[in-house]
Design a protein around this nucleic acid. Sequence first.
DNA 1: TAGTGGTCTAGACCACCTC
DNA 2: AGGTGGTCTAGACCACTAT
Lengths: 231, 231
Amino acid sequence: MGWEEIKAEVLSRIRARDWAPGATIPGEEALAQEFGVSRATVNRALTELARAGVLERKRKAGTRVAALPVRRATFEIPVIRAEVQGRGQVYAVRLLREEISRPPLAVAAVLGWPILGGEALGAMLYLETLHLADGAPFAHEARWLNPGLLPDPRPDFATVSANEWLVAHVPFSTGDIAFSAEALAPETARAMGLAPGTPVFVTERCTWGEAAPVTWVRLTHGPGYRLKTVI
Amino acid sequence: MGWEEIKAEVLSRIRARDWAPGATIPGEEALAQEFGVSRATVNRALTELARAGVLERKRKAGTRVAALPVRRATFEIPVIRAEVQGRGQVYAVRLLREEISRPPLAVAAVLGWPILGGEALGAMLYLETLHLADGAPFAHEARWLNPGLLPDPRPDFATVSANEWLVAHVPFSTGDIAFSAEALAPETARAMGLAPGTPVFVTERCTWGEAAPVTWVRLTHGPGYRLKTVI
DNA sequence: TAGTGGTCTAGACCACCTC
DNA sequence: AGGTGGTCTAGACCACTAT
C-alpha cells in the first residue's frame, strides 16, 4: 500500500458513507496498523486529502470528514504568449501607451502605494498593451508598474511584454487575483476593435514582491474567452 | 531548519537570482548537507515548491527553476448558501422548474450520458433554481441531474437546494469547471429580474461520481459578482 | 494533562530518466 | 548504467488543544 492507494481507499470509504460527513475517522496510528504501513505513509495520504478540503484535521481532536465540503480547485495563470502559442496561434504584442504618472487612488490603495491627502504620493509607470493572436485582438492589458523595480534605462516594452519581463526578473511574487464579467468600456472597445458594451471576461491582479508593491494589472479578454480547470 | 524555512530560503535565492529561471539547483543530498537536515526535509520543501509551479523536478535530470513560471492559484467552490450567509445576508432558494426530460445533446455529450441517433438515450432530472440573498436574486441555476442517484421518492428540492443535497449525499465527485462572461439570455433575464444582454459571470460545472455521471450545472451570477483568490 | 496530528531523522529501496 | 527524485520505515520529539 502506497500513500496514493490509502488516499483512494479513504475517499472510497467516504463515498460509501462508511465515514459520513462530519464523522471522526480513526487516528493515524490505527489506520497505519490496519493498512500495514507506517504512520508517515498514512499521514501523507490524509494531509493530501485535508489540503483538498475533503478532511479536516486538528491535533488532539482527530481527523473528521468535512461536513460542508468546500471543494478546492487549482487553475494556472499562464504567460499570455504561452497561452496564445499553446492554441497554435501566432502571438504578437502592441504597446499602445507608456507613460509615467500618478496612479488612480483605487490602484494606489490596493497596492499599498503611498497616499497623501487623497492623492497617490509618487508616480508609477503606466503601460497599455494589446495582445494579438493571429493578428486579432486577444486581450487588452492596462498595467501600473512600480518604476523602482526597473533598470535604467528601462526595458523596451514594445518588444518584450511587461508580463514576460516581470516573470523573468521579479519572479514568484505573491498577490491576489479576481475575475469578473463586465460591459466593455468605450476606450477599451476602440483599442480592441469591438462594440462598447460587449460582455467581456476581466482579470484583475495585484502583486507584491518581497517588500515593495510590484504591479497592478487588468486584463480584458476577448469575447468567447473561457477559464477552465479540473476539480 | 524546518521544511518551511528551507522553502523560504530556496524562494529567496530564486528571487535574488542566485538560481536563475531555467537553471538547475543542487540535488537534495547536497542541500540536506548544506542546511544540516535530512534529505526528507529538503524533499518536502522542494516538492511543495514544485507543486506551486516554482520548480520543475525530474528524476535523474534534477531540479530546475521553472523557466516560464506558470503560477498556480487555488480557489474554493463554495456551497451557495454558505457563500451568501458568509456575506451576512439571508439566504433563500426558489425552485422555478422541476421536470424529467431528455437533456440537450451538448449536456449529454459532455457528461458521457448515452446518446443514440443524435439524441440522448434516457431522461434526466432538470431543475431550475433561483438563489436569493436578502430577497434579491443572487444566482440562477440550471441543472441536469442523473435521476439514478436519487432515492425514491426524491428529495424536496424546493426546500433543500440540489447543490446542497448533492454535496451531502454524493460527496467528493470529480469534474471540471469553466468560467466565462456572457450576455444575459432573455429567459434567464426574466427569472432574475434583469435586463437581457446584461454582462453576467457564468460558471459551468460537470461532475462525475465513482462510475456514473452526476450532474451538469450552469450558474449565472448577478452583476457585480467577483471570483477572488490569493496567488 | 493527555492524546492527537506535525515534523524530523537516518537509512533504505525503487522507478525513472538522461547520459 | 548510474544518478536523481519518489517513496517508505521505525522511531522520536514536539506543538497544539480538547477535556
